[in-house]
């Protein structure tokens, strides 16, 4: 049974990689990636715009959301926590396209509108994960720390934040991956990015534009996702990995 299962899994894996390889071979043979190598300058420019929108908004979101998450989990402001969490939950059910369109309503056409939309949209998962991470620290552990004479700042710095780091990074990862996709729609509000080629492809029924835009965006999203998953792994304090394993057992 076990070897049968293993074999099934292997077959599925081989089929998957074959399908991916077939897609790329087919794409190249049809010249579907040709926009990339025929206009490398433009490609890099669009990629640059794309990355700029993502990182400018993501960076600003981290700067605001992490301190805000710390703030609402302080005992004195605990009462604001449920409100913030509710807003963050609700906000994430609003589709990204709607947020982008709403930002355009505020700032008009341009890069600013795209950055604003992505910024607001990134706040939510980062905020949510920061709060969840800080809240995951056992009350008794914090009580022991207080009883031993750690100041609130020392408890935050030495106990709460090390325990929350992984969750915060996971929030940043979620935000960035969503942003990469939303940035592909930024063309609609006149902010450029690789979405330009995707939409050109849709309008002109030109598959080479579609593929030359869509595949790099996809790879970018997967790469960022993997990079941040790797960061989560290496940045998790060893003691916490053990703690998690102990809890799951």
């Amino acid at each position: 049974m076990d070897t049968f299962n293993k074999r099934t899994a292997l077959v599925v894996k081989i089929l998957l990689w074959t399908a991916i390889a077939a897609f790329f071979i087919w794409g190249f043979s049809q010249g579907m990636f040709r926009q990339i190598y025929e206009q490398p300058g433009l490609f890099l420019e669009l990629l640059g715009e794309h990355v700029l929108i993502i990182f400018a908004s993501g960076f600003a979101a981290v700067l605001i959301a992490v301190p805000l998450g710390i703030f609402v989990t302080r005992p004195a402001f605990r009462r604001t926590e449920w409100f913030i969490v509710t807003v963050a939950n609700l906000g994430q059910t609003i589709p990204s396209l709607a947020v982008l369109a709403l930002a355009m309503g505020v700032l008009g056409i341009g890069v600013e509108a795209a950055i604003l939309a992505l910024f607001v949209y990134s706040l939510l998962p980062i905020l949510q994960n920061t709060i969840a991470g800080l809240d995951s620290v056992d009350e008794n552990t914090k009580d022991a720390a207080r009883g031993m004479g750690l100041t609130n700042l020392q408890i935050l710095w030495k106990v709460e934040l090390p325990n929350a780091v992984v969750s915060i990074i996971a929030g940043i990862r979620t935000a960035l991956v969503i942003n990469i996709g939303t940035a592909a729609l930024a063309y609609l509000v006149g902010a450029g990015g690789l979405g330009v080629w995707i939409f050109t492809g849709i309008r002109l029924f030109d598959n080479s534009y579609l593929i030359s835009g869509a595949v790099p965006v996809t790879l970018l999203a997967i790469a960022v996702d993997l990079l941040f998953r790797y960061l989560e792994r290496v940045l998790t304090p060893k003691g916490l990995i053990l703690a998690r394993e102990a809890n799951e057992a």
Partner: peptide, 24 residues
């Protein structure tokens, strides 16, 4: 393991990009 991984990769693909790949 394989299927859940595959599905999670799919989730990271931006929707407009997935449309872009599916059309051709």
């Amino acid at each position: 393991g394989t299927i859940l991984q595959l599905a999670s990769v799919f989730m990271t693909i931006p929707s407009i990009a997935l449309f872009g790949v599916m059309i051709p």
